[in-house]
């Protein structure tokens, strides 16, 4: 059937123009992201694996045990996760995927940080301005329903293959929940508390930083947790455009029909996901 409206071509020519006219910008973004991922990988891989395992285990313990860290209750609360961290990460190391796991973690951390730099201010904006909310909301809907693979195409187009298109696609894919939850958290701050702030002469900035953001913190942290998990799932897909890490092993497993590889790397991703999720959840609960 003949197309009445050729939307695809219009978008394509738009993207072409963007690529041509701002090539300097794309180059700069590529440089910054590649450099950050590269140096973070180098630093983390330079540290012996057991120190990293110990560090993550301690982090997991403190996140759960809080004030009771030196008491029996603390051990009861934080003990399980700590044990899981030690055994899980050691298993990853023993299977021979330590380097890939670090690469994946780096990609998750960098993408999450970039996503948060955009999503939290956007969420604040959406919560405080109806116009912004009306504009942002459908864009978020679009971003969340669009199949994740679709983001890979323009990402390659702008940044060719490698870690950068992976990070960019991951950022776009994982950003919506943080915007939504930041917006929701701020909108749910009781109006009487805000009114009290106004009555005492608080400026808009003071209301945001002293009342709205602190009260919205648990919801915002839940949003960050979602971003991290989405980033992790996207990083696997991003291996199709050359992002390194456990995802590329999964990808190899599929291509080579190698069950052993696929299972091991898949298990590694699950272990990372559980650790990241439980630790961020414990921090959010505080």
């Amino acid at each position: 059937m003949e197309k009445l409206i050729d939307l695809g071509t219009i978008i394509e020519s738009g993207i072409n123009k963007l690529e041509e006219n701002f090539s300097g910008l794309w180059g700069a973004i590529d440089d910054i992201i590649s450099w950050t991922v590269h140096s973070m990988n180098n630093v983390l891989l330079g540290i012996p694996f057991y120190i990293i395992i110990a560090f993550v285990a301690l982090g997991a313990y403190y996140a759960n045990a809080e004030k009771n860290a030196f008491k029996i209750e603390g051990l009861k609360k934080g003990g399980g996760l700590t044990l899981f961290v030690i055994l899980g990460l050691f298993l990853v190391f023993a299977m021979g995927y330590w380097e890939e796991s670090i690469q994946t973690t780096t990609l998750v951390i960098v993408s999450t940080l970039i996503a948060l730099i955009f999503s939290i201010p956007l969420g604040i904006l959406a919560a405080r301005s109806k116009t912004a909310d009306v504009i942002i909301r459908p864009i978020l809907d679009l971003m969340q329903t669009m199949p994740a693979f679709v983001y890979l195409i323009p990402a390659i187009f702008f940044f060719s293959v490698g870690n950068t298109p992976g990070v960019v696609a991951t950022v776009i894919f994982s950003l919506p929940p943080a915007v939504r939850l930041t917006c929701l958290g701020i909108q749910n701050v009781p109006s009487d508390v805000i009114e009290a702030g106004r009555a005492f002469g608080a400026t808009e900035k003071q209301i945001l930083f002293k009342i709205q953001l602190p009260l919205a913190k648990p919801t915002i942290l839940a949003g960050i947790n979602q971003v991290i998990l989405l980033a992790l799932s996207m990083v696997v897909i991003a291996s199709m455009v050359g992002a390194k890490g456990l995802g590329s092993i999964v990808y190899q497993g599929i291509q080579q029909n190698d069950i052993a590889k696929g299972f091991e790397s898949g298990l590694g991703i699950v272990i990372l996901a559980i650790i990241l999720d439980r630790i961020t959840q414990a921090i959010a609960k505080k």
């Binding site: 009487d192 508390v193 009114e195 009290a196 009260l215």
Partner: peptide, 13 residues
């Protein structure tokens, strides 16, 4: 002028 509210309006954190 300072105000006192029916619902207190205290900051829970």
């Amino acid at each position: 002028m300072s105000m006192v509210f029916q619902k207190f309006g205290l900051l829970p954190h």
